[in-house]
Protein backbone atom coordinates (compact mmCIF):
# COMPACT_ATOMS: atom_id res chain seq x y z
CA UNK A 1 0.00 0.00 0.00
CA UNK A 2 2.77 2.43 0.79
CA UNK A 3 4.70 1.87 -2.40
CA UNK A 4 6.15 4.96 -3.91
CA UNK A 5 5.75 6.09 -7.48
CA UNK A 6 8.42 7.44 -9.82
CA UNK A 7 7.36 10.74 -11.31
CA UNK A 8 9.13 12.31 -14.30
CA UNK A 9 8.61 16.02 -14.53
CA UNK A 10 10.21 19.34 -15.40
CA UNK A 11 10.88 21.77 -12.58
CA UNK A 12 12.21 25.23 -13.30
CA UNK A 13 13.28 24.08 -16.74
CA UNK A 14 15.10 21.01 -15.50
CA UNK A 15 13.89 17.51 -16.32
CA UNK A 16 14.03 15.29 -13.28
CA UNK A 17 12.52 12.29 -11.58
CA UNK A 18 11.41 11.91 -8.01
CA UNK A 19 9.88 9.25 -5.82
CA UNK A 20 6.77 9.95 -3.83
CA UNK A 21 3.72 8.41 -2.27
CA UNK A 22 0.46 9.19 -4.05
CA UNK A 23 -0.81 10.88 -0.90
CA UNK A 24 2.00 13.43 -0.91
CA UNK A 25 1.04 16.83 -2.22
CA UNK A 26 3.14 18.64 -4.77
CA UNK A 27 3.98 21.11 -2.00
CA UNK A 28 5.24 18.32 0.20
CA UNK A 29 7.27 16.86 -2.66
CA UNK A 30 8.82 20.20 -3.54
CA UNK A 31 9.74 20.94 0.06
CA UNK A 32 10.55 17.57 1.60
CA UNK A 33 11.64 15.48 -1.37
CA UNK A 34 13.30 18.04 -3.63
CA UNK A 35 14.43 20.57 -1.04
CA UNK A 36 12.73 23.44 -2.84
CA UNK A 37 11.45 25.20 0.27
CA UNK A 38 10.57 28.47 -1.46
CA UNK A 39 6.94 27.37 -1.66
CA UNK A 40 5.53 27.82 1.84
CA UNK A 41 2.77 26.08 3.75
CA UNK A 42 0.46 28.66 5.28
CA UNK A 43 -2.81 26.76 5.47
CA UNK A 44 -2.53 23.52 3.46
CA UNK A 45 -6.05 23.88 2.15
CA UNK A 46 -5.93 26.43 -0.60
CA UNK A 47 -6.87 29.53 1.32
CA UNK A 48 -3.64 31.52 1.57
CA UNK A 49 -1.64 31.19 -1.65
CA UNK A 50 1.75 30.87 0.08
CA UNK A 51 2.42 27.60 -1.78
CA UNK A 52 1.62 28.95 -5.25
CA UNK A 53 3.48 27.48 -8.20
CA UNK A 54 2.84 27.49 -11.92
CA UNK A 55 1.77 24.09 -13.27
CA UNK A 56 2.03 24.06 -17.06
CA UNK A 57 1.99 27.83 -16.76
CA UNK A 58 -1.23 27.92 -14.71
CA UNK A 59 -1.24 29.37 -11.22
CA UNK A 60 -2.16 26.71 -8.66
CA UNK A 61 -1.93 26.03 -4.95
CA UNK A 62 0.66 23.26 -4.76
CA UNK A 63 -0.98 22.02 -1.54
CA UNK A 64 -4.01 21.09 -3.67
CA UNK A 65 -2.07 19.14 -6.29
CA UNK A 66 -0.79 15.62 -5.76
CA UNK A 67 2.88 15.10 -6.44
CA UNK A 68 2.03 12.30 -8.87
CA UNK A 69 0.04 14.74 -10.95
CA UNK A 70 3.29 16.44 -11.94
CA UNK A 71 4.10 13.49 -14.24
CA UNK A 72 4.87 14.83 -17.70
CA UNK A 73 4.15 18.42 -16.74
CA UNK A 74 6.18 21.53 -16.02
CA UNK A 75 6.38 23.17 -12.64
CA UNK A 76 7.74 26.63 -11.97
CA UNK A 77 8.60 27.70 -8.44
CA UNK A 78 9.98 30.89 -6.95
CA UNK A 79 13.45 29.36 -7.16
CA UNK A 80 13.14 29.52 -10.95
CA UNK A 81 12.12 33.15 -11.26
CA UNK A 82 15.50 34.81 -11.35
CA UNK A 83 17.47 34.00 -14.48
CA UNK A 84 20.75 34.87 -16.09
CA UNK A 85 22.12 36.19 -12.85
CA UNK A 86 19.31 38.74 -12.61
CA UNK A 87 16.30 38.99 -10.40
CA UNK A 88 12.96 38.94 -12.18
CA UNK A 89 11.59 42.51 -12.40
CA UNK A 90 8.88 41.55 -9.92
CA UNK A 91 11.47 40.39 -7.42
CA UNK A 92 13.40 43.61 -7.90
CA UNK A 93 10.30 45.77 -7.51
CA UNK A 94 9.20 43.91 -4.41
CA UNK A 95 12.54 44.83 -2.86
CA UNK A 96 12.48 48.44 -4.01
CA UNK A 97 8.94 49.03 -2.79
CA UNK A 98 9.49 47.27 0.54
CA UNK A 99 6.62 45.03 -0.50
CA UNK A 100 7.57 42.38 2.00
CA UNK A 101 7.87 42.51 5.75
CA UNK A 102 8.18 38.98 7.11
CA UNK A 103 8.46 37.57 3.58
CA UNK A 104 6.63 34.27 4.13
CA UNK A 105 3.88 35.12 1.64
CA UNK A 106 6.31 36.67 -0.85
CA UNK A 107 7.08 33.59 -3.01
CA UNK A 108 3.35 32.98 -3.52
CA UNK A 109 2.69 36.61 -4.33
CA UNK A 110 5.58 36.70 -6.80
CA UNK A 111 4.25 33.71 -8.72
CA UNK A 112 0.70 35.01 -8.64
CA UNK A 113 1.90 38.38 -9.90
CA UNK A 114 3.98 36.73 -12.61
CA UNK A 115 0.94 34.78 -13.70
CA UNK A 116 -1.06 38.02 -13.79
CA UNK A 117 1.50 39.82 -15.95
CA UNK A 118 1.67 36.79 -18.27
CA UNK A 119 -2.06 37.19 -18.90
CA UNK A 120 -2.36 40.93 -18.58
CA UNK A 121 0.84 42.92 -18.99
CA UNK A 122 -0.80 46.23 -18.15
CA UNK A 123 -3.23 45.64 -15.27
CA UNK A 124 -5.16 48.30 -13.39
CA UNK A 125 -4.97 48.51 -9.60
CA UNK A 126 -8.37 46.81 -9.39
CA UNK A 127 -7.19 44.00 -11.63
CA UNK A 128 -4.07 43.49 -9.52
CA UNK A 129 -6.14 43.36 -6.34
CA UNK A 130 -8.57 40.91 -7.87
CA UNK A 131 -5.83 38.63 -9.17
CA UNK A 132 -3.97 38.65 -5.85
CA UNK A 133 -7.04 38.12 -3.68
CA UNK A 134 -6.18 34.44 -3.23
CA UNK A 135 -2.86 35.34 -1.60
CA UNK A 136 -3.01 36.44 2.00
CA UNK A 137 -0.49 38.84 3.47
CA UNK A 138 -0.84 39.77 7.11
CA UNK A 139 2.02 42.28 7.33
CA UNK A 140 1.73 44.89 4.61
CA UNK A 141 -1.93 45.72 4.11
CA UNK A 142 -1.15 44.99 0.41
CA UNK A 143 -0.46 48.65 -0.44
CA UNK A 144 3.21 48.21 -1.28
CA UNK A 145 2.63 44.83 -2.94
CA UNK A 146 0.09 46.32 -5.31
CA UNK A 147 2.41 49.22 -6.07
CA UNK A 148 5.33 46.88 -6.73
CA UNK A 149 3.28 44.82 -9.18
CA UNK A 150 2.02 47.92 -10.99
CA UNK A 151 5.57 49.25 -11.19
CA UNK A 152 6.92 45.93 -12.43
CA UNK A 153 4.23 45.90 -15.13
CA UNK A 154 5.51 49.28 -16.30
CA UNK A 155 9.04 47.92 -16.39
CA UNK A 156 8.38 44.64 -18.18
Amino acid sequence: MKSKVIVATTINGEELEFLCEPRQSLLEVLRDVLGLTGAKEGCNNGNCGACNVLLDGVLVNSCLVLGVEAEGRTVETVEGMASGGQLHPLQQKFLEHAALQCGICTPGFLLAAKSLLDHNPDPTEAEVRHWLAGNLCRCTGYDKIVRAVLDAADTV
Partner: peptide, 23 residues
Amino acid sequence: SRPLRPDGVDKVTGRAIYGADVR
Protein backbone atom coordinates in the same frame (compact mmCIF):
# COMPACT_ATOMS: atom_id res chain seq x y z
CA SER B 1 16.82 57.03 3.30
CA ARG B 2 15.23 53.93 1.81
CA PRO B 3 17.89 51.34 1.04
CA LEU B 4 17.12 47.72 0.11
CA ARG B 5 16.93 45.34 3.05
CA PRO B 6 19.93 43.07 3.63
CA ASP B 7 17.83 39.91 3.66
CA GLY B 8 15.76 40.94 0.67
CA VAL B 9 17.27 38.80 -2.07
CA ASP B 10 17.03 35.66 0.06
CA LYS B 11 13.38 36.37 0.65
CA VAL B 12 12.36 37.06 -2.96
CA THR B 13 14.24 34.06 -4.30
CA GLY B 14 12.83 31.55 -1.83
CA ARG B 15 16.24 30.90 -0.33
CA ALA B 16 15.57 32.31 3.12
CA ILE B 17 15.25 29.54 5.68
CA TYR B 18 12.13 29.78 7.83
CA GLY B 19 11.38 27.43 10.69
CA ALA B 20 9.54 24.85 8.62
CA ASP B 21 12.44 24.76 6.15
CA VAL B 22 14.88 23.38 8.70
CA ARG B 23 16.11 19.89 7.89
